[in-house]
Amino acid sequence: MANSKLYKGSLNTIILKLLDEKGKMYGYEITQKVKELTKGELTITEGALYPALHKLEAEGLLDVEVAKVDNRIRKYYKLTEVGEKETVNRLAELEEFIRSMQNLVKPNWSIQ
């Protein structure tokens, strides 16, 4: 499994990006989707997912919807208007970060 510490700071952005693509998702679905997309390389731990979702909700970036599914209550998260704008910003920040890291790790120049 990949070093989870490297992903930790990007967890919120990953969640926002997934919701941007899928519209609305519930907690378990998010963990499975991340696992599927990264072919098992990245696992979002349950202990980190829900605090992240609740924080984004408190910040007004996510809205919640509930439905009764199979004898139980399912809580779906979706982006608010503010959340949609913030997703664009955070993705741009993440891309910038990835570019910087690439420059640091694989510089396209060499002293030789």
Binding site: G27, Y28, E29, Y50, V69, I73, R74, K75
Partner: peptide, 11 residues
């Protein structure tokens, strides 16, 4: 409780 129950149930 409700959110965690749904999570455990899915799992």
């Amino acid at each position: 409780q409700a959110e965690l129950v749904d999570h455990l149930a899915n799992g």
